[in-house]
Nucleic acid binder design. Structure first.
Lengths: 156, 156
DNA sequence: GTCCGTGCAAACGTTTTGCATCACC
DNA sequence: GGTGATGCAAAACGTTTGCACGGAC
């Protein structure tokens, strides 16, 4: 069993009038088990190992579909390609990224707004009141130097 | 005089061994006066009115150069094209964007960290300590509904 | 059997690059 | 005059789309 198959949405698909297919499940399984930030190409290569016939277009179409369904989320780390993460069941979780500008390493930091206090509460309140803008989603990245690259650069 | 010509970096260019050219100055002037979030294509069209001979490649090369020099900053609002803003002289200013998911309107909110308190201070401290990560730059966008689109959608 | 999903290839839009020419220094 | 900047065209890149076939229901 190549991927952990813990997360099934066959029922959900049926309810939406969508067909459950092996490629769709394979993409979900991959992202659910990897918990990484994979690009379409990386997903394509990985799923191809199981289903050699799969096409890149199917991967893109599936990723778009799953993003619309709220199962995945699309991120942009400014390297010219979109990245996808499994987010279903984490609707109350806000997700920040630390991106190292040297090695590209991505560190995740999650805050569950149901359990923890929202670190951006004050800022969001200011923005909501000032502009009468309803914030639905935050997209927050911090760029800088990771632990390792910082100590390496200090040696020079 | 089509663009406000208040910001000159001829000297700065010389110091870096770069040549000062009319197209470069025109792009700087445009972004300095417009204060918007212009794409390369939009900049190209605008500068073409003054210098009809300019090529799109030059615009891209100039934008990259000015971004490296810290005169401009490149933003991504997820519409498939990069946008540029003039930021020179605003090194202590943090800049948040509110992007309306319906009309695409972009609202700017600036915080001068020298004069005002950093709204993200606590979060940044947590991240810095926890991961020993040096934050150099924040990239913060909020997506949602602007005032106008909110009231329009409530009528339906 | 009926659709929806798929693979393939071609198209797309933005951005980058190669190269000969041009203009700043 | 030398070197970096430019314009043009072509290429590159990630992504999307058209179309005929195949598989889920």
């Amino acid at each position: 069993m190549p991927f952990e198959e813990g997360w099934c949405c066959r029922k959900r698909f049926r309810e939406c009038g969508l067909k459950w297919t092996q490629t769709r499940q394979a993409i979900i399984d991959l992202l659910h088990s990897k918990k990484g930030h994979l690009s379409a190409e990386e997903i394509f290569i990985e799923v191809k190992k199981l289903y050699p016939g799969i096409g890149l277009a199917t991967v893109y179409r599936t990723l778009e579909l799953l993003t619309e369904l709220g199962i995945l989320r699309k991120f942009d780390f400014k390297d010219g390609r979109a990245r996808y993460e499994f987010i279903a069941g984490k609707e109350t979780v806000e997700h920040y990224h630390l991106v190292c500008r040297i090695c590209g390493k991505i560190i995740d930091y999650e805050v569950d707004l149901e359990k923890q206090q929202d670190p951006l509460k004050d800022l969001k309140n200011i923005l909501t009141e000032r502009f009468n803008f309803s914030i639905e989603r935050s997209d927050i990245q911090f760029f800088g130097l990771c632990d390792r690259c910082k100590s390496l650069s200090q040696k020079d």
